[in-house]
Write a protein that binds this DNA or RNA. Structure first.
Length: 402
DNA sequence: TATCCGTGGCC
DNA sequence: TGGCCAAGGAT
């Protein structure tokens, strides 16, 4: 007789296990089978038949596996594939990447978010060229030591590119195992995290790490998704939460983080056909990306007043607002911003008609330039600033502001 | 351990 | 529209 046990210490954590007898008179309520090898085979057979033809699955070169894994962090597959193809056209190998400028790498990454991933990729490529003679390391410790490579990605590269018998636990695996094991506590916290990590390790079959790790992640993406499709699942007979009718309650969600709304004002300073842009400090949001100056609108402050104030604070330029470009709304992580956009001009432009203003006194940036619209196209910018730039170019073409 | 770090698609 | 989320890492 099947009996429920505390999920974090259930018998699945004691692989290998013995099969339980199925009550044929109540097939739909058949208790989960527990043969490890059958679960593994079910995953592998399903993957062989249903895996998606992703670009890096053609040859599984370490470089391609690495780039794909970093790109797919917190990114949807279809989007990741598009960026991956474009990336490989421009940077087909580690050496071409290592030789690139950070601006170009970030520009290629623009729109994917979490820009430290791109900065880390470039740093890692240069490290591989210098310390590993351009050859991607196969040793787990060496892989893990690369910037931007954490526990998941190290296991993924070592197993998928090099076939090493290691687990990789991502959000898909957490979800799949939370359901199979019927874990009733948040998966990212203890004791569930250890249970999942240990189970994932026991699940990896000898000599099949590459296929198995992708199989369980693919299952999480295609079948055991947020809304599970248990009728299509090759391993539903091993799934305790399916048996208990609790698949929609697993995994147990973690703590919700409140979204903080705030209002910012941004100014596009135009002077003789050139636009002032500055490069954001690293370590904060949008690190090393180029932006138009601006910032938070204070409580009770007018956006127009705020943009003038922020320009003086961030650049030392005294400006006035010449145009209103409207509002751009944008959300990121836990923030929701309302960006009031202005065209601004210098209060005291230089007397000589062909000269640029004196250098700015930067307080919120590490670099600056007066860029023409074509140059702005080549600079990596945060999504809302790119939106604003495109909006202005459309306007400037109509009004011949140059 | 908790928080920060982006973005666009989906329902 | 708004909440949720999609192959995590660094601090």
């Amino acid at each position: 007789m099947y009996s429920m046990q505390p999920s974090t210490t259930n018998r699945f954590s004691q692989f290998p296990l013995t099969r339980l007898q199925c009550n044929s008179s109540a097939r739909r309520h058949c208790p989960p089978k527990t043969h490890l090898s059958e679960l593994q085979k079910g995953l592998l057979d399903w993957f062989a038949e249903h895996k998606r033809p992703l670009p890096w699955r053609a040859s599984y070169t370490p470089y391609e596996v690495w780039i794909s894994e970093i790109m797919l962090q917190q990114t949807q597959m279809e989007r990741g594939v598009q960026y991956f193809k474009r990336w490989m056209t421009r940077f087909p190998d580690v050496r071409s990447l290592a030789a690139a400028s950070e601006d170009e790498v970030l520009r290629l990454w623009e729109g994917l978010g979490y820009y430290s991933r791109a900065r880390h990729i470039l740093a890692a490529a240069r490290h591989i060229v210098q310390e590993h003679k351009g050859r991607f390391p196969s040793d787990l410790a060496a892989i893990r030591a690369l910037p931007g490579v954490g526990p998941y990605t190290a296991g993924a590269i070592a197993s998928i590119a090099f076939g090493k018998k290691l687990p990789c636990v991502d959000a898909n695996v957490e979800r799949v195992l939370a359901r199979i094991l019927n874990i009733d506590t948040p998966v990212k916290q203890e004791p569930a995290a250890s249970n999942i990590r240990e189970t994932a390790l026991k699940l990896v079959p000898e000599g099949k790490a590459r296929e198995h790790n992708q199989a369980i992640m693919e299952l999480g993406a295609l079948v055991c998704a947020r809304i599970p499709r248990c009728d299509r699942c090759p391993v539903s007979v091993y799934c305790i939460s399916n048996y208990e009718g609790l698949t929609d309650k697993r995994p147990v969600p973690g703590k919700k983080i409140a979204v903080k709304p705030f209002v910012v004002a941004t100014g596009v300073l135009l002077h003789r056909g050139r636009i002032f842009v500055q490069k954001r400090h690293i370590g904060r949001v949008w690190g090393n990306l180029w932006e138009f100056p601006g910032g938070k609108v204070n409580e009770g402050e007018n956006a127009k007043t705020a943009v003038v104030r922020k320009f003086l604070e961030e650049t030392g330029f005294a400006v006035y607002t010449a145009q209103e470009y409207g509002i751009i709304r944008h959300s990121y992580t836990t923030y929701k911003i309302t960006m009031h956009c202005f065209g601004v001009e210098l209060k005291n432009p230089p007397c000589l008609t062909d000269s640029l203003p004196p250098p700015p006194l930067l307080t919120a940036a590490c670099a600056w330039q007066w860029a023409d619209p074509a140059a702005i196209e080549t600079l990596p910018m945060p999504a809302p600033h790119r939106k604003l730039a495109q909006q202005i170019f459309a306007t400037s073409e109509q009004q011949c502001l140059n």
